[in-house]
Design a protein around this nucleic acid. Structure first.
Lengths: 325, 325
DNA sequence: TTGAAAGCGCTACCAA
DNA sequence: TTGGTAGCGCTTTCAA
């Protein structure tokens, strides 16, 4: 068995209460006692049992993190950000992957909820109503989703979309396709909304193409329809879809960017690795994860700071966009 | 406060002891009592507090998972496998990312160790001796690393390498480069060893090129040296390095596979998305994660099954390899 | 400034 | 088959 508070108390010749104080509220213990206790504790390698402590304080020192699909390259960086920030705050992270299943999500969330002080939900798929219900039961922060009354971290989509469209317009594009993601996705709705707004302002003709799964295959499957739409540029729901487009275009001998320009969203690591490299709107990932944890910790400590953060976006111009032919 | 065992006991008109039994060892409780208790419990939404239970049983129901770098696309699938299997066994997963830092690793492992029943260490970077020390303190399983006396899950590297080399030989390649990964990496040592063995058997001339960081940039940085080595094919330490090679080759106008064939290792999702798609030796990822959890659970339940599992590998032939010119 | 003791929610033992 | 109760390791009163 590991060393307990009693072992320390005995060796230091004090009561267990004094040991607790020496470690948690040092200022109320006489310096000489405090030092003796601390030395014994560290010489024995004592660390308080978190479960036992949690039983009393109601705080576990753990946070729960939920992602829809870790295999989607957008998420690992967010997870890393959460991890890093949580570690600094001496919190451990429970991870759950829902496999893009909105139904499984609710169950997992509640399961997690009971073992943690709070939750960071990354781009959750579940219904707004259900989400709101959970938010009443356990402190939580949304990342890349926004719901009235629930703290969230998102990015400035409108600005990102404006950067993207201005770039294409500057290259002479006037008729542009948008490949939409899942209709149920909050992120997709945001993107569509932003895009319509800026397209109208810029006088660009927009061709919206059906909902696809937000993955490589989604892009592959819609590529031929994009070509048939007679546009000179296409904006994809996300980078994965954009990569699917590139893949199918290459297979059909369509040159990018000479025949058609392709623009993605997210800036996943892959975007810079392919040929031609993908022009894309970079959304903060690690930073979003960190901000999520920060918000959550504030919440837990009742420091009610900004309940909603919007991080900046940045267009990354690479090889997949060029002049309209 | 959440509903406790006492609430259930009171409402069901039994003692707390009976409630525990009705839920954990139903067979020792009279059916009528059992049913009454269970109905009350579920109507109240009662779930035992895991921390409190752990205090007594010594089991937390949590397992710790450690990966060197979640941003490396090889790991997310493993994590998903661990997750899925752990969930089935009603265990939660603590995740830690060490950012490829062998020193941070040891600290994180020990920190995790105190909150879990056992650990799954994924391709850990730390020294063998240290690893062995930790293994004595807490049940653990290694994934993609092997150390005498510690349970592990790996893949049949030798067989995979043989498939890869036979493929290249069949295409007429006789002089082949290998781009090595980090010298300190167990996986790299295994691959070098396998490759030398099969190369000798096949009468293939091997050109070994320096150690690179196991990432995209590593491949980019060594690409020119590969070209200077006058080989007709190159095997990279992993897919990320192979992608770096492809990228630089494309930039220099070197055609793949016409001028040179490129072969990777791992079969990360990206491998199939690039153009030309990457021929690679597929290592089980999700499956390895699942097997890791299985081994760990066996260990925890003292069912001492196979202490070492080697999963099969499979060469995925794609566009990046072709006939020697 | 310190110690004694109650009790967090649960399981395991012993007795009935 | 059931109930009473000790006690897991810790923090937090309350008293001294």
């Amino acid at each position: 068995m590991a060393v307990t508070i009693r072992d320390v108390a005995r060796m230091a010749g004090v009561s267990v209460a004094t040991v607790t104080r020496a470690l948690s509220t040092p200022e109320v213990v006489r310096p000489t006692t405090r030092e003796r206790v601390r030395e014994v504790a560290s010489s024995l390698g004592y660390h308080p049992n978190r479960a036992a402590r949690g039983l009393i304080t109601g705080r576990t020192g753990n946070i729960g993190l939920l992602v829809p699909d870790l295999a989607n390259p957008f998420f690992p960086s967010i997870v890393k950000g959460v991890q890093a920030r949580a570690l600094e705050a001496d919190h451990a992270v429970f991870l759950a992957d829902t496999d893009e299943d909105p139904d499984a999500e609710a169950g997992l969330v509640r399961k997690l909820a009971k073992q943690v002080d709070g939750l960071v939900l990354c781009s959750p798929r579940m219904a707004e109503q259900e989400l709101r219900a959970v938010a009443r039961e356990v402190p939580m922060v949304l990342v890349y989703r926004r719901i009235a009354g629930v703290p969230s971290v998102t990015a400035e989509f409108l600005d990102g979309m404006r950067q993207a469209l201005s770039h294409l317009v500057a290259l002479g594009h006037r008729r542009i396709a948008y490949v939409a993601g899942p209709r149920s996705s909050w992120a997709n709705r945001e993107r569509v909304r932003s895009l319509r707004t800026v397209a109208k302002q810029a006088g660009v003709e927009l061709v919206e193409l059906g909902s696809v799964t937000p993955q490589f295959q989604g892009g592959v499957s819609v590529a031929d329809r994009v070509l048939a739409a007679a546009v000179t540029a296409v904006i994809a729901y996300n980078d994965l879809v954009a990569l699917g487009l590139l893949h199918r275009f290459a297979a059909r001998g369509v040159a990018v960017p000479d025949d058609i320009s392709v623009l993605g969203f997210d800036d996943i690591p892959l975007a810079a690795m392919v040929h031609p490299a993908l022009t894309t709107v970079a959304l903060p990932q690690g930073q979003a994860g960190q901000a999520g944890v920060d918000l959550l910790l504030d919440l837990l400590n009742k420091r009610d700071r900004a309940v909603r953060r919007e991080l900046p976006t940045q267009l990354m111009v690479r090889g997949s966009t060029g002049s309209a032919r």
